[in-house]
Nucleic acid binder design. Structure first.
Lengths: 203, 203
DNA sequence: AAACGTTAGGTGGTCAGACCAGTTGGATGA
DNA sequence: TCATCCAACTGGTCTGACCACCTAACGTTT
């Protein structure tokens, strides 16, 4: 026995999802059925499922079954955070990285934002439901790069773990909206520098 | 029983590592001992350890024991990759994101590189042991942002999964070294554009 | 004394079976 | 027809048993 069983099981499950065309919300076979079909012990199946659960790929509900989950909330982040984010340097790195990524997202969003997205942002601002997280979630989405969105989500989760909050006045979002409408990249970066970077760099 | 046992065990293990001041390379108690000390079944301990193994936090060696690992290679990446990277858009996003992050790293490294690091890079080039991965590992390190290094490592792992290779002539590294010595940021970005971005964007 | 097997005990890897705790859906009764 | 109940699922956990593997101590040989 060279490789670990649960890793093989992961591959089997992946294939199962692919071949059966399962999507988010669908149910996958029970642990007992999997263990029988794959000729492995149930505990090995469970180790594989635990892994997928941590990665946020499946969701298990006691008494019901195991379901494929929409990518998104990841247990993973808070776990990694517990172990990684310990020193002071780490926190400084986190803030720096988050700001850099946000700058990138701003630039991408500036080029790629659509009229519909602009309308959604305008709505959010007028309804006063906008806050920093929601705003940048919009920015990341408007950048139209799924991977970058995920990177930002992870960093944001880390950030929240630190309980650091940023206080942004409503006027910031209004000015940003205007800059997005004109696709004025330098204005976006300037505003970002003035309202956000300045506030976080003095800590 | 509301919460899952293995999540509690994770917290216990984390505390154990913290309180005993364990560092990379140290051994943690055996599965049987943990299950006894925490009053839980061994299978539950194993589910927790499997999780930590996936996150790259511990390493298990059959017959020897379980050891704390230096952060770095995580099974996690290839796993996530299996499930996430499927469509064409995903691949395009990956390449774009990787290039953007590398640009950031270049800028940081340009400001922060030390004389020692420059010497190391020079050595690498002269010995002809340099390649794209090693070069950008150096760049990321020189940027002196641990988190950003990790982000790059993850993206690079994803990238390798795609079996895409970049072909870079030695002259590129030499010119880059010169630009780093002069701290000429625009030259760095220009070179990057010319040798790397151009090559990857035509796919 | 140094080098070489040998072996016993510890460790992770896996499995089977048992029981608990929820959920579900159909059979049963009013 | 509707409410109730219960059997048959599901995941969650524990136990005990093997196996494969490594290490260290021991004794033997050189």
């Amino acid at each position: 026995m060279t490789s670990k069983v649960y890793l093989e099981i992961l591959e089997q499950i992946r294939r199962l999802i692919e071949e059966d065309g399962l999507v988010a919300g669908d149910k996958i076979p029970s642990e007992r059925e999997l263990s029988e079909r794959l000729n492995v012990g149930r505990s090995s199946v469970r180790e594989a499922l635990r892994a997928l659960e941590l990665l946020g790929i499946i969701e298990t509900r006691r008494g019901e079954g195991t379901y494929i989950k929409e990518f998104g909330e990841h247990q993973l982040v808070s776990l990694l955070g517990m172990f990684i984010l310990q020193g002071q340097k780490a926190k400084a790195d986190l803030i720096e990285t988050k700001l850099l990524i946000e700058k990138i997202c701003l630039q991408l969003a500036c080029q790629r934002r659509t009229e519909n997205q602009l309308a959604a942002l305008k709505e959010m601002i007028e309804q006063k439901t906008v806050d920093y997280d929601r705003f940048f979630k919009w920015v990341a989405d408007a950048g139209d790069n799924y991977l970058l969105v995920r990177v930002w989500l992870v960093l944001n989760d880390f950030f929240r773990l630190e309980k650091t909050t940023v206080d942004i006045p409503l006027i910031f979002y209004k000015k940003m909206l205007a800059a997005f409408q004109e696709q004025n990249e330098s204005a976006l970066l300037l505003l970002f520098e003035e309202y956000v970077v300045k506030q976080l760099s003095k800590r």
